[in-house]
Amino acid sequence: MTGTVSLPGAIHRVGIVGSGTMGAGLAEICGRAGLDVVVVASGPASVPAGLGRLVSSLDRAVTRGKLSEDDRDATLARVAFTTELDDLADRDLVMEAIRENEDQKSELFVALDKVVESPQAILASNTSSIPIMRLARVTSRPEQVVGLHFFNPVPVMPLVELIGSLLTGEHTLQRMTEFVGGSLGKTPIRSPDRAGFVVNSLLIPYLLSAIRMVESGFATAEVVDQGMTLGCSHPLGPLRLTDMIGLDVVAAIAESLQAEFREPQFTPPALLLRMVEGGLLGKKSGRGFYPYS
């Protein structure tokens, strides 16, 4: 278990907005790091669902020998679930992990700016594509707004993209570098504040190209994925990766990239848009480019 970094401005009390896959993952790594965690779910029905995700992930870690039962219980004791944003008033850091929608995230940041009391508290977004400036400018503390882009599954993936806007203070970036690398034991990389940041600027055109191959009949999903896993040593083919990320998330990121850069490579294929409209979102919905039980 990783200990909390004892430095000026160190983060001890963490708030998380969203109890889905990413929110529960963030709660797990913060709880395992010994931090005091409060998770705000979207409604009463989401509380047991979010807690269930957290418990299931911790149980898998115990089964695989990655975590002791005592540490599992200690982690759960550090994580509280609520439905009230006001319960985040005393937090040092609040990370949002709601759906990839700029209007909804902006509304949330307006609310968090009013709720979180400490003038030193940092507000962070787990957005995978939205420029941080657009979220920072709706608050009264733009110098303390950053992007912390974690990858799914959060407890496993070691990388975190750290994104500051033109208004983000260097002290804020230093605090977040210490938090990600020290408290959480992840590897932070800094990215300029542009849609898609580093990883998705490279990844999304690749995924869209794979979808276009299927859409045109050039190759099946299975053939495309075999080509990349067996021919290029990728651990996961692009269509299975799209299913894991969520087709709606891939489409939202592509649209954000297209809006910023106006380049054909970022245009979502019609097949992707129709699948999203039909609720074929990938693994989380039970069907995407592949069926899931």
Score class of each variant (00 low, 15 high):
Leu7His: 04
Pro8Asn: 05
Met22Asp: 02
Ala24Tyr: 12
Gly25Val: 14
Ile29Gly: 11
Ile29Phe: 11
Arg32Lys: 12
Gly34Thr: 06
Gly34Leu: 03
Leu35Ile: 08
Val37Arg: 04
Val39Ser: 07
Ala41Gly: 13
Leu51His: 15
Val55Pro: 00
Ser56Pro: 01
Ser57Tyr: 07
Ser57Arg: 09
Asp59Gly: 13
Thr63Trp: 05
Arg64Asp: 07
Arg64Phe: 09
Arg64Ala: 14
Ser68Val: 06
Asp70His: 13
Arg72Glu: 05
Thr83Met: 11
Leu85Val: 06
Leu85Asp: 11
Leu93Gly: 10
Val94Gly: 13
Met95Val: 15
Glu100Cys: 04
Asn101His: 12
Glu107Trp: 00
Val110Met: 12
Leu112Ser: 11
Asp113Met: 01
Ser118Phe: 09
Leu123Asn: 00
Ser128His: 05
Ser128Cys: 03
Pro131Trp: 03
Ala136Gln: 08
Val138Trp: 01
Pro142Tyr: 03
Glu143Thr: 03
Gln144Ser: 04
Val145Trp: 10
Val146Ala: 15
Phe150Trp: 07
Asn152Cys: 02
Pro153Asp: 02
Met157Ile: 02
Leu162Tyr: 10
Gly164Ser: 08
Ser165Asp: 01
Leu166Pro: 01
Leu167Ala: 14
Leu167Gly: 02
Leu173Val: 11
Val180Leu: 06
Gly181Met: 08
Gly181Tyr: 05
Leu184Glu: 10
Lys186Arg: 13
Thr187Gln: 04
Ile189Thr: 15
Arg190Val: 02
Arg194Glu: 04
Gly196Asp: 05
Phe197Tyr: 12
Val199His: 01
Leu203Lys: 09
Ile204Val: 15
Ile204Arg: 00
Tyr206Lys: 02
Ile211Ser: 00
Ile211Lys: 00
Ser216Leu: 04
Phe218Gly: 07
Glu222Gly: 06
Gly227Val: 11
Thr229Trp: 11
Pro235Tyr: 10
Pro235Phe: 14
Pro235Glu: 06
Gly237Pro: 05
Pro238Trp: 08
Pro238His: 05
Leu239Trp: 04
Met244Ser: 10
Ile245Val: 15
Gly246Asn: 04
Val249Ser: 04
Ala251Cys: 12
Ala251Glu: 14
Ile253Arg: 00
Glu255Arg: 14
Glu260His: 13
Phe261Val: 02
Pro264Ser: 05
Pro264Thr: 04
Gln265Pro: 01
Pro268Thr: 12
Pro268Val: 12
Ala270Glu: 15
Ala270Pro: 01
Leu273Val: 13
Arg274Gln: 15
Val276Met: 04
Glu277Met: 03
Gly278Cys: 06
Leu280Phe: 05
Ser285Arg: 01
Gly288Cys: 03
Pro291Asn: 10
